[in-house]
């Protein structure tokens, strides 16, 4: 069942070019040069209940603009959005009760007051009952280790601590959909892992639908089965992570190290037409191949059987490389 339906949505902004310098500033007072920027262009997709979807794109690709339209902050220039049964910008009051939002760049909490006071204020704003409130705090504390942070003002928290509190705040009122815009930006490995564990658990246990944008593709690899790729306002890909790997020639490579230095005759291996071999130096060789044509197990078996090797390393294409490839091609591939 689709919980978010986005159909043919575009968002255009009008910006004014400014001339530089003092004289330019004076000219700007009298003449403004309007320029229209299409941040999101004819984007359509749906998200099912309980799904965890990764929304990726380079800086300025239109990710945040999409999230802002999905959360009701911005009004689409054209097209329609329905989420949780509401039109986000129009039914903002009812709609925001059922969603949670985290912007990695900016806290949702009140800067000067203790974390627990922020939670208390949110509890009142969202009409959360005392019991639910206590329960939620227990759950969050178990995963995010919140208790030591509760009585500190938000401005005194480290980025990682603040993000843990922001996540808890976004889930406090048991939302059905949660939007996370760069939730792991600027965090260290441990903090990232904490947050991923939390998201996995919440998504699995409470069936919360999660839409998350990120730069860090390892977030997506760990959390999401489905990805949407946006570039310069266009949706370039919508499908499963495996589909993404399959669709774009995912070159895999095997690097193997010989026992003794020497020249290798790759012809003996019998993969000449499908695998590209290359001797890197006296000891190390590289085999590049397409997983769709060659099973890596077969290739490794052949190498180990016919050559005297000490070490074999298999290296899959990372999503990062695929995305880079998609960006450079810039073609539209939706399912």
């Amino acid at each position: 069942m689709a919980v978010i339906e986005v159909s043919r949505v575009s968002k255009r902004f009008k910006t004014y070019d400014r001339k530089e310098g003092v004289w330019g500033g004076i000219q700007n007072l009298f003449r403004r040069n309007p320029r229209e920027v299409k941040a999101v262009d004819d984007v359509s997709f749906t998200v099912d209940a309980g799904e965890m979807v990764g929304y990726i794109g380079a800086n300025g690709a239109g990710k945040s603009t999409t999230i802002k339209m999905l959360t009701g902050i911005l009004v689409p220039s054209s097209g329609s959005i329905r989420a949780n049964g509401y039109v986000p910008y129009r039914d903002r009051h009812q709609y925001t009760r059922g969603i949670g939002v985290v912007f990695g760049q900016r806290t949702q909490l009140w800067w000067d007051i203790a974390v627990v006071e922020s939670f208390q204020l949110l509890k009142r704003i969202y009409d959360v009952s005392d019991r639910t409130f206590e329960e939620q705090l227990e759950v969050f504390d178990a995963v995010l280790n919140l208790k030591p942070l509760l009585y500190t003002p938000v401005r005194k928290l480290s980025l990682g601590e603040r993000m843990r509190c922001d996540l808890a705040a976004a889930f406090l009122h048991r939302p059905r959909i949660v939007f996370l815009d760069e939730p792991t930006i600027g965090l260290d490995v441990v903090a990232k892992e904490n947050i991923r564990q939390f998201l996995k658990r919440i998504n699995a246990e409470l069936q919360v639908t999660v839409v998350l944008t990120t730069h860090d593709l390892s977030d997506i690899e760990e959390l999401c089965r489905r990805v949407l790729i946006i570039d310069r306002g266009h949706l370039l890909f919508d499908g499963s992570l495996e589909g993404l790997r399959e669709r774009f020639e995912c070159k895999s490579q095997i690097v193997f190290e010989l026992r003794e230095p020497g020249q290798v005759d790759f012809g003996r291996l019998g993969f000449n037409s499908t695998v590209e071999f290359q001797q890197l130096d006296a000891l190390r060789c590289q085999a590049v191949f397409d997983k769709k044509q060659v099973a890596s197990a077969e290739l490794i078996k052949a190498i180990v059987n016919s050559l005297a090797v000490r070490d074999v390393m298999l290296d899959d294409t990372t999503i990062e490389e695929i995305v880079r490839e998609i960006y450079s091609r810039g073609e539209v591939v939706t399912r």
């Binding site: 009701g72 925001t96 939002v101 900016r106 949702q108």
Partner: peptide
């Protein structure tokens, strides 16, 4: 500063929030 974003995300009248913060 873009703080109006967070105002828009809460189920309360936006003017109410701005005045009473």
């Amino acid at each position: 500063e873009g703080r109006f974003d967070q105002i828009m995300l809460r189920p309360l009248h936006s003017l109410f929030q701005v005045i009473f913060e």
